[in-house]
Design a protein around this nucleic acid. Structure first.
Lengths: 214, 214
DNA sequence: TCCAAAAAATGACTGATGGTCAGTCATTGG
DNA sequence: CCAATGACTGACCATCAGTCATTTTTTGGA
């Protein structure tokens, strides 16, 4: 009988229900303030049950980042497809990253939280199938960017003497830093210091263009 | 009598002793793993006494970031003074930021931790004299960069049509993102993916030059 | 020198929360 | 219908940030 498969499916569904609950609770009372009990209650489960699906709290953050990254990947692919040459693709992906961060702020925030997890804790997770799956998605996301860079080096829109991986990492990490500032302090910058964040964002992309061009 | 002043001095000394203790404990057993009791024990004080000097744990993080920022500022000033024109100053400051992050990794990490503190908690702190003093130092650090940018726009080494504040924020936030990647995953990138992080860093500065130039 | 008030320091305590475990309850396949 | 499997749970534990009533030390005047 296909009981086995059904069971597997239901397990996955429950996992998703818990992530749904976490998402709601995070939105309602803040990520840091949310407790495992809150999440369990929202999922209409006992706390111990939640722990059957997520062996520790960080894995919930990871699960949500994983959800987000799947969306992110699609957005990146769409953005990349919409542009004609390598450099335009890179910029389009950059803009898609912005859109992602502002459309799914909760998912985006997971990145920051996960990054602040001590390496010793990552050790505990790194062999879990969930984590391996997670890494696969992340790599998929970065591959979209990498492909665009390689194309750009071939079609002459990006300096051909660059190292693609290094360039990708630089584009990604600097975007991250910029986006993090925008997402966490953008409002303060606008209201308190009168910074035109829209113009600043445009300049950011102009600068990126300038530095990538041959 | 000068008792009042002496008291004040001793209070400050104790504050510093606690920060010293925190620094040691953080280095010994990790920032996340360190408890207030650990810090108190290392400082040879009762936990409650530590709480007289730091009303909550986050203020210790803030205290260490404050310490670091004072060093950072000096390093920035020295770097800026060592270069002749605006653009060179900006790059020199960027390099100084790198040196700071790798020389004082503990202080640098405080930035990440502080950024991940929920805004609700910042509200609690923002009127404390300590926090105001802290902000003053931070602004001082950023002023060094801002001055270099303004000079560069005057001496023709930086595009004159830029907005200095926006440019400063962009330079700072992108450096932050890049540096954060290097500090937290640099080793992994080198050992696992064979990334030449030295070359990558040089390229980062070359890119910055390219994007700032007129 | 003594003493009372002020300041500094503390140990015992509390509440919250992440995580565990022994055992219950529901489902399944024979 | 029953025994085995596995999902699920409530009670419990350990840890830790933060509090408070009380003690200890310092201070400045009598």
């Amino acid at each position: 009988m296909g009981t086995e498969e059904r069971k597997e499916r239901e397990k996955l569904r429950r996992r998703n229900e818990i992530l749904d609950a976490a998402e709601t609770v995070f939105a309602e009372k803040g990520i840091r303030e949310a407790t495992m009990e809150d999440i369990a209650a929202k999922a209409e489960l006992g706390k111990s049950t939640v722990y059957l699906y997520f062996r520790f709290k960080e894995l919930i953050y990871l699960g949500l980042d994983w959800r987000g990254s799947k969306i992110e990947k699609k957005m990146f692919e769409k953005a990349s497809a919409s542009a004609a040459n390598g450099l335009d693709k890179v910029i389009a992906i950059g803009r898609a990253y912005f859109e992602y961060a502002f459309t799914y702020p909760l998912y985006f925030q997971m990145k920051t939280i996960i990054e602040s997890i001590p390496i010793s804790d990552i050790e505990k997770v790194k062999d879990e199938p969930v984590f391996i799956d997670f890494q696969k998605v992340i790599e998929g996301v970065q591959k979209v960017l990498l492909d665009a860079i390689i194309l750009g080096m071939q079609d002459g829109t990006i300096a051909p003497d660059r190292d693609p991986l290094r360039t990708g990492l630089t584009v990604w990490s600097t975007s991250n830093g910029f986006l993090h500032l925008m997402a966490s302090r953008g409002e303060i910058l606008e209201k308190l210091y009168g910074v035109d964040t829209m113009a600043m964002t445009e300049e950011f992309f102009t600068d990126m263009r300038k530095s990538l061009r041959p």
